[in-house]
Design a binder for these strands. Structure first.
Length: 262
DNA sequence: CTCTATGTTTAATT
DNA sequence: GAATTAAACATAGA
């Protein structure tokens, strides 16, 4: 459940379930996922706190509590927050459960994450992973001159820059792959070889891809044009899509209509 | 059995 | 030193 649009949907759910509620009980024991790693310390920081708001930057969630505390949550590859009945049996991959009370009504939410790449951080101040995030395309918007200067200041491939969370917060492998196809830019192009027109194309492509994700949320993968479709015809020029590895991530592209900038 | 996976960090290699 | 690549983390599914 990992790219920005999915995380935003989780944020809205959490906001609805938790805002204004008091945390009356916490169950959590996974020293790999929790920070601080001590489950007792982690639990004690949360119990008794009231949820003021649920925020998001990129792929990070921040459940804002009273007393200046925050519960930061990254979903990794397979993390998700769900609501369940208070007496529900633990899910096999459940790693945290919060019981909340609001106007006498009880709500239970739980964090489920089969691969356990996610993190839950209970902290009295904003964590570094949060503060060093770059611009969030959904909440802060994008503009071409800013992206152009960001691209020009780096010497990595354009795809790696798009996925750099300190530049753009929330862009993952799917959105980066799709947006570069829409913008007709070869993902291997060095970012400092892109000009203002390329930046403008990319801004539009990113916005279109993200809006398409919002529109088709929960509709499976039919929404994607080239991600995971290597070997199949390019939807634009019908030539077979190629598969490469870039920055350690699988990338689909059309070597015919995505032009490499030099 | 092998390969791959929406993420991120760290170690190793070039 | 910089840049690229591999490995690591855990688990499920094709």
């Amino acid at each position: 459940v990992p790219e920005l649009v999915d995380v935003e949907i989780v944020r809205r759910n959490l906001q609805r379930w938790m805002r204004g509620a008091r945390i009356v009980a916490v169950t959590a024991a996974d020293r790999y996922i929790l920070r601080p790693a001590s489950p007792a310390t982690f639990r004690h920081r949360l119990v008794g706190r009231t949820v003021r708001n649920v925020g998001r930057r990129g792929k990070w969630l921040r459940i804002e509590l009273d007393a200046g505390l925050g519960l930061f949550s990254h979903l990794g590859m397979t993390g998700d927050w769900l609501t369940c009945k208070t007496d529900a049996e633990p899910d096999p991959h459940e790693h945290a459960r919060l019981e909340l009370s609001r106007h006498g009504a009880t709500t239970t939410v739980r964090y489920v994450d089969p691969r356990r790449f996610g993190r839950l951080v209970a902290s009295g101040e904003d964590i570094e992973e949060w503060t060093r995030l770059g611009r969030d395309p959904l909440t802060e918007g994008l503009d071409a001159p800013w992206l152009a200067s960001s691209l020009a200041s780096m010497r990595r491939s354009v795809k790696e820059v798009l996925m750099d969370q300190t530049v753009l917060a929330g862009i993952g492998n799917i959105v980066a792959t799709e947006a570069l196809w829409r913008a007709r830019i070869d993902p291997r192009s060095r970012s400092d070889a892109l000009g203002p027109a390329d930046a403008q194309s990319l801004v539009r492509a990113l916005q279109a891809t993200i809006q398409n994700e919002i529109r088709h949320k929960g509709e499976g993968e039919g929404r994607l044009r080239i991600y995971g479709r290597a070997g199949q015809p390019c939807p634009r020029c019908t030539r077979a899509l190629t598969r490469i590895t870039l920055g350690g991530r699988t990338t689909a592209l059309c070597t015919h209509c995505q032009v490499r900038r030099r």
